Amino acid sequence: MARRLDPHSEFARLLPHHLQREHTGVYDAPEAFGAFIRGGGNVELYRRASRALTRILDEHTPRTLLDVGPGDGLALLPALNDATGPAPHVDLVEPSTALLEQATDALQAQGIAHRAHNTTAEDLLTTHPDQRWDLAQSTFALQSLPPHERGPVLHALAQRTRHLSVVEFDVAHVPDPFDPHWFDSCLQRLERGLREYENERDLVGTGFILPVVLGHFATHTRTNHEHSVQDWAHDLEQAGFTHVRTHHLCDYWWEGAWLLRAQGRHTG
């Protein structure tokens, strides 16, 4: 049997504030997202993600790089700065205008050649059918793809990239979010995540964590469609990627983060 909601929990305190908000996309207003990724367990999580991306850049020394959903560049910029080889030309595809502007400003300040695409990965791959990349990467962004879009996007990437690196959480499929055992686990993890933040807890909680997690219970507002690592690997193979490898990257309050690497079919 699931626990009753603790009335003294941070979740119980923040829920009314969340319900009273006028909600837009969680990535459309960057303040809450920016505070979220720069606090709590995300500090170590993004540090490890950037280090992994740096190693991949050093291994492949790509001339062209596609970053799918870079946000404001928190994982991308340290990876580029720490890589030992010359910086590649970077294509950014990011649907959030505010986040994309922050990322492009940072690349401009570093003198890194880039193109900014204020759209979705699906639209970019459709409208630029001849574009190819030595390396494509995505950090906690492919989970935003609804299931019906995931396969076509991955298939297009497999045909048009040499190598792919993806960082995502290992989240098992939840057939019923109201299952007492999963619901109880969700509440406990949510509480841990909220309590990692002090001064910005209300901003992060109502502006990002609660909208994302509660999307499990209301499909029309869902922003994340998470997957298990095994499912991600299967999807990559089904899309045409080969030599798919997985590596545990970091523990985290929600679920563990993993790095997936694969070889695409572009050889030109």
Rank of each mutant, 00 (worst) to 15 (best):
R3Y: 07
F11E: 07
H18Y: 15
R21E: 14
G25S: 15
I37H: 03
V43N: 04
E44K: 03
R51D: 13
P62C: 09
D67I: 07
D67C: 07
G69H: 06
P70A: 03
A75V: 09
A75D: 02
L76N: 01
P78N: 03
L80Q: 02
A83C: 14
T84H: 10
G85A: 14
G85N: 06
P86R: 14
P88K: 01
L99K: 01
A106D: 09
A106V: 07
Q108C: 07
L124R: 09
W133R: 01
Q137A: 07
A141D: 05
L145W: 05
P146T: 10
A156S: 14
A158E: 04
Q159I: 08
T161F: 06
F169C: 00
V171E: 08
P175T: 05
D176C: 10
P180E: 09
D184P: 08
L190D: 10
G193Q: 12
G193N: 06
G193Y: 00
G193M: 12
R201W: 05
D202S: 13
D202W: 11
L203P: 11
L203A: 12
L210R: 09
L210M: 15
L214K: 08
L214R: 08
H225K: 04
E226T: 13
H227Q: 04
W232G: 05
A239N: 09
T242M: 11
T246C: 10
C250F: 03
W258N: 05
